Simulated assay, not measured.
Amino acid sequence: MRRATRGYAALGLVLTLAVTAGCTSKAPTNEDAGDRNKDEFVIGYSQSNNAEPYRAQINLQLRYYMEKYPKLKLLPISDGQQSSATQLSQVQTFIEKGVDVLLVSPNEPDPLTPVVEMACEARIPVVLLDRSVNTDCHTSFIGGDNYEIGKKAGERAVRELPDGGRVAELRGVLSAKPQIERHKGFMDAIKGHDIKVVAQREAKWLRADATKVTQQWLQGGKKIDLIFSHNDPMALGAFLAAKSAGKAKKTKFLGIDGLAIPSGGIRAVQQGKLDATYLYPTGAKEAARTVADIVAGRKVPKKQTLETVEINSENAAEIYQKYDMSGKIE
């Protein structure tokens, strides 16, 4: 309880400071990264939750790609632990340290907006990675098109259930923008088809939570033909629950992320656990390049949308080979 109290106190402090500061509407640019002739530029990165496999891969890949630019010094990555109060306090610390560029993957948009605006007011260029906030006062956003990914998953559901069927949806953190957009895309795609969403629950991006939720559905007698999960760990959790109940062979499973790691979604497709997953690139390579461009004084795009593709049994091996970074990072 004491930890939660401190967290909310930090949240209140940041909100107060943000209001007092009165953030400017002009986002920091490459001109705000300090003296371009410096030998070293300090980069702070605030990650929303290191416990998620996707985010662990972002961290590993970001360290790898940052090392390609000798002038960039990436500070130890802060772990928000899926707590917005914790994360905004960590971001505030980066601002107080006066980092040259700030990278943020927000846990939730609303709570992190004020602290991003504080960085803006401090003229620190901010690169948002994977998730956005509710302000234009940032230098660049890098991420996938979550609505399009959800839509592709919905279109797959329609193909898998041509005569109609019952779908369950395992959603990420409900207030997170990727979850909101993936859900909307999926629902728009199945609209007008004889597909009924019979259950949907927040499973917070976590495999264990998804396993528990799916077990509850099946034990309660819920009849499900297809489970759409907002990431691969939840999809695999659902698969394990269905397998344990003897219902995996009669159920279709769709995920999102498509990590090229042994425990990731691509391997799960190859192993027949998932029917399909959708590539959601980490953006680490683009983030490192963007930061390098900022400190070098080069103009960077305000928005960088990363590609996606459906990964199925036909292309899984090819996609895995393309994105496999084993041997490069540990």
Score class of each variant (00 low, 15 high):
Val197Ser: 09
Val173Glu: 02
Ala199Lys: 14
Ile195Tyr: 09
Ala189Leu: 02
Asp188Glu: 11
Ser175Asn: 01
Glu181Tyr: 11
Ala176Tyr: 03
Glu181His: 05
Pro178Gly: 00
Val173Leu: 09
Gly172Phe: 01
Ile195Arg: 04
His183Ser: 15
Arg201Ser: 14
Pro178Val: 08
Arg171Asp: 07
His183Ala: 15
Ala189Thr: 00
His193Glu: 13
Gln179Arg: 07
Gln179Phe: 01
Lys177Trp: 03
Gly192Leu: 05
Gly185Val: 02
Glu181Thr: 02
His183Phe: 14
Ala199Ile: 14
Ala176Leu: 03
Ala189Gln: 01
Ser175Met: 06
Lys184Ala: 14
His193Val: 03
Lys177Gly: 11
Arg171Gly: 02
Val173Ser: 04
Asp188Ser: 05
Leu174Phe: 02
Gln179Trp: 01
His183Ile: 10
Ile180Phe: 04
Gln179Asp: 13
Val173Gln: 05
Lys177Gln: 12
Lys184Met: 05
Arg171Lys: 15
Glu202Thr: 01
Ala189Lys: 02
Val198Gly: 11
Lys177Cys: 08
Gln179Ala: 14
Lys191Tyr: 12
Lys191Gly: 09
Phe186Cys: 02
Ile195Gln: 09
Ala176Pro: 00
Val198Glu: 12
Gly192Lys: 06
Arg171Pro: 06
Ala176Arg: 01
Lys184Ile: 01
Lys184Cys: 00
Lys177Arg: 15
Gly192Ser: 10
Ala176Ser: 10
Arg201Pro: 04
Leu174Ser: 10
Pro178His: 04
Arg182Trp: 00
Lys191Cys: 10
Ala199Arg: 14
Lys191Ile: 06
Gly172Gln: 08
Ala189Met: 07
Ala176Gly: 00
His193Gln: 13
Asp194Val: 12
Gly185Ala: 04
Leu174Lys: 08
Pro178Arg: 01
Glu202Asp: 12
Arg182Tyr: 02
Arg201Leu: 14
Ile190Lys: 03
Gly185Trp: 01
His193Ser: 12
Met187Tyr: 05
Ile190Trp: 07
Gly172Val: 00
Asp188Arg: 04
Glu181Gly: 03
Ile195Phe: 10
Lys184Thr: 08
Arg171Trp: 03
Val197Asp: 11
Arg182Leu: 07
Gln179Cys: 12
Gly172Lys: 01
Arg182Asn: 01
Ser175Arg: 09
Lys196Tyr: 11
Ala199Gly: 10
